[in-house]
Amino acid sequence: MSALTTLQISPARWLYLRLSRSPSLTTGAAIILIVLFMAIFAPWLAPYDPTLQETANRLMAPSQQHWLGTDAFGRDILSRLIYGARPTLLLVLFVVLLMAPVGITIGILAGYLGGFVERSLMRITDIVMSFPRLLLAFAFVAIMGPGLLNGALALALTSWPAYARQARAETAKLAKSDYLAAAEMVGIKGPRLLFGHVLPLVLPSAVIRLALDLSGIILAAAGLGFLGLGVRPPTAEWGSMVADGTQVIFDQWWIAATPGFAILITSFGFNLLADGLRDLMDPRND
């Protein structure tokens, strides 16, 4: 049905059609953009300094001055919530930057080279995969000490194997394809072949997987914060804010509920985004 494919429509119109047909992508992207905006412009958006303690105004209910009330140290919860988006998103960013490249590289190498390299790389992957993810991360942070970067390292350490497996399976399938045979025949080899030719074909599914994983990473990051293994106090972070709030949860429930709600919404946003991306990048839609 080549007659169908020769009818071109402009890219802008294509994007508009796609977005209008995928409400989940639009909603997810909007949520993530708002959170991102909050994180970047926190100093201008936040009404108070997030670490400013006003002991006279401890545990206040939402009011005109403090829209979401104050916590046990009299700090403004709205301000902490806005600033709290920063370590959360930063952590997610670090995890993504560490885990996806490592996993994809290992997977591509294993899938393309095959033989002994593949067997050893995939056994290592299996071993890491067999550990319970959060437990290994907690142990890592317990040894290395809490902090943003260590938390990110810990989560990345345990989440790359899924990418390696997926990339390996796709690369192994591609290794038999005419694309790569043709590239090899004209003398393209080594890193140029792996990263110039294999990577672009492996990347779309990795990106979708990443978006799906992000909501899990948000939750894991909050979990680390909740257990006091993330950023150090008094820096605002959603997970540790929930932890602080639990001490007074029966009297001042909103202190724990507001950061909890922020975690929920962000995680939900990433999920919607992933869902929409999957529809968008599915090759059957090309």
Binding site: S177, D178, Y179, A181, A182, A183, M185, V186, G187, I188, R192, G196, H197, P200, L201
Partner: peptide, 23 residues
């Protein structure tokens, strides 16, 4: 070599200029 199926022997995410320029 020229392959049987031109749909699968040209890299789908490379432009023609790249396909011919890279070698």
């Amino acid at each position: 070599m020229v392959f049987q199926d031109p749909y699968s022997s040209l890299h789908p995410r490379h432009r023609i200029a790249h396909i011919l320029g890279e070698p």
